[in-house]
Structure formats: structure tokens, C-alpha cells
Simulated assay, not measured.
Amino acid sequence: MRLRRALAASAAGVLIATLGAACSEPPPPGASDLVDPGTPAPKPTPTPSLPAGPLSGQPLTQPAVAGRQAIAVPIRVSESGTPAGLDAADLVYQEFAESGSLHLSAVYQSRDATKIGPVAEVRPVDIRSVGVLHPWLGYAGGPTGFVNQLAAANLSGVTPAQRSAAFPSGYTSTTALRAAAPKGGTAPAPLFDYATTGTPLATRDVTAAGKLTVSASGHPTQTWTYDQATQQWSGRVGKTTVKASAVVVLTMEYRTLTVRKPSVRSLPSANVYGKGKALVVSGPSSAKAEWSKPGQKLVCNVTDLAGYQIRPQPGTTWVIYAPTTARVAVT
């Protein structure tokens, strides 16, 4: 009896050992080990993508801003002037005006500015530059012929004579101008294809750049330098330091306009319709380019020498209308 139990126990031990050995053998080819995954990790909620400002290319924290009308303000800057509100602009167009001064057309859409100015009279360059954007203008009147051109271009705005409270001490703000604008204005269409991470400024002839100079007769040389820390180009307008993500220099003819009302005077005027050479700096790069703008209702296309759109970095774009006699250099 004891011998039978011993034999049974011995047989059971052999069987368990055999099964254990079998369990420890590697699985046959093609087999896979099944492991209990436990509780699955929750899937992350995707971050909703923010719309970009049509004139800045930068993400907007308030999506509704993407659909609002642009505001445009002409600004006159002397050599000793201190203009305000330029760093908040999405676009700034610069014309070399009389007596060493600059005439700027500042456009605001994605951001607001509490103080803009000094507000200047409207000029043909304002109408030709911003007309395609369908903005609401804040301007300080102007010669009769220029005001008539503004109306003929189907552009509207407000002046100190119409709403003095919106122009304290010759300055204004985006809040004041939007309060004066009628409802129903349309958002502008993008002017540039903005660069994304790793996108080059142009498809060819891109060179490293850290300094840009523009020298126009009768004006101090304008110098822009690249700041690697902020990834911005910095320049001076009057006595104010301004920054831009891109500076676009368009070379074009200037002509002299004779104004008769309300007083006789002669004014230089950039001929922004046509085509010509361009130079663009954005990020630590520069590229030669060409520009073309057939008329007011058409966008000014800036393309590289292979015919592809220039792609500046998102942010403020500063467009300089350089006379054909100006010296433009980049290093």
C-alpha cells in the first residue's frame, strides 16, 4: 500500500516536472506571447489648431479676430519724429516723402494698438497699397484730389473733422477707429504664403543675412539688423526703434505730383503699379526677388527668381518702396 502511494507520488512528480519543462520551452516560430494589457491609457485630447491672422500668419488666441476688417492709418514721420503703434501693425508700407520724411501706411488686423500716429493725410500710395485689403481708414483729410481718389476706390474712413474724439492730440487707436466703422466690413485675404518650420525663404539664391541698408537721396540711410535672440529685424524710423519679421524692399519709379488744393505744393509719389526687382530679408536669410502689381484690386506678388512665392516668417512685414536710384545692400 505504501509502495503504491510512493509510486503514484513519484509518477505525479515526473508529470509535473515534464509539464514544467514543456512550459519553459521557447514558442514555435510565428507564435506570440499574449500579455494582459491591463487598463488602456486614455487617448490625449487633440489640441485644436488656432486660425492664423490673414496678414500676419501668426496663430490667433481669439479665433473671431480672423474675420474682422483691417484698419489702415497713414503716418508721417520726420527724422526727429517718434511714431507710435507700429510694432502692433501686421503690415507697414513705407514711401520716401518730401523733406527727408517718410509716409507710412500701417495696417492692423490681428492685433490692436492703443496709440497710433501721428495720423497723416491720405496720399495715393495709401490707396494703391491697401485698397486690395478693403480696410477702414483713419486719416487726417488730405488734398481734394487725393480724397476724391479715395472715394473712387470705394474706400471709406473717418477723419478728425468727422470725429475729433477718435484722434486725441493727432493720434488714434484701433479701438476708436473700429467704434467709428460701420458694421459689415470684410476680412482681408492673405498677401503672403508664410513660412512654416523648416521652410526656406525662397527656392533658390537664399543667402545668410544680418544687415540690410537702404539709402535714398535726401534721406538718412535706413539700417535694419537681425537679432538672433528675438528672430526679428530691427530698424529705426525717426527716433523710434521698430521690429519686423520680414523686410521687403520693392524697387520702383517715383514721380512728382503737383497738388493745387487746398495749397500748391509738390510731392514725391511711388508708382506701386507695375513690376520690378525686389530684395527680401526674413529670419537670418535674404533672397533676390521680383514684384508685380498690375492694379489696385490685385495683390502685389513677390516671387523668387524661380517664379515661386516668397515665404516670409509670420509676424509684421515691412514693405519699403525704394526709388530706382536708391542703394540697397545686404550683408
Rank of each mutant, 00 (worst) to 15 (best):
R5V: 10
S10H: 02
S10E: 07
A11W: 12
A11Y: 04
A17T: 12
A17M: 13
L19M: 13
G20C: 12
E25N: 05
P29I: 04
P37L: 01
P42H: 04
P46C: 07
P59D: 00
A66L: 01
R68G: 04
I71D: 03
A72R: 08
P74G: 10
R76S: 10
V77D: 01
S80A: 11
T82L: 07
G85W: 10
L86F: 11
Y93W: 11
F96Q: 02
R111I: 00
T114M: 13
R123P: 13
R123S: 10
V125F: 14
D126T: 01
P135Y: 03
W136I: 12
G142E: 10
G142K: 10
L150K: 08
A152W: 01
A153I: 07
V158R: 06
V158Q: 04
P160R: 12
A161V: 00
A165N: 14
Y171E: 03
L177R: 15
R178G: 07
R178W: 05
P182T: 12
F192Q: 11
T196D: 11
T196S: 09
T197A: 14
P200N: 05
T207F: 08
L212Q: 08
L212A: 06
T213L: 10
V214M: 15
T223S: 08
G235W: 09
G238V: 03
V242Q: 13
V248Y: 02
E253C: 03
L257T: 08
K261G: 01
P262L: 05
V264Y: 08
L267D: 05
A278D: 09
S285L: 00
W291V: 12
K293A: 11
G295T: 15
V299K: 14
N301M: 09
R311F: 02
T316A: 06
A326V: 09
A329G: 09
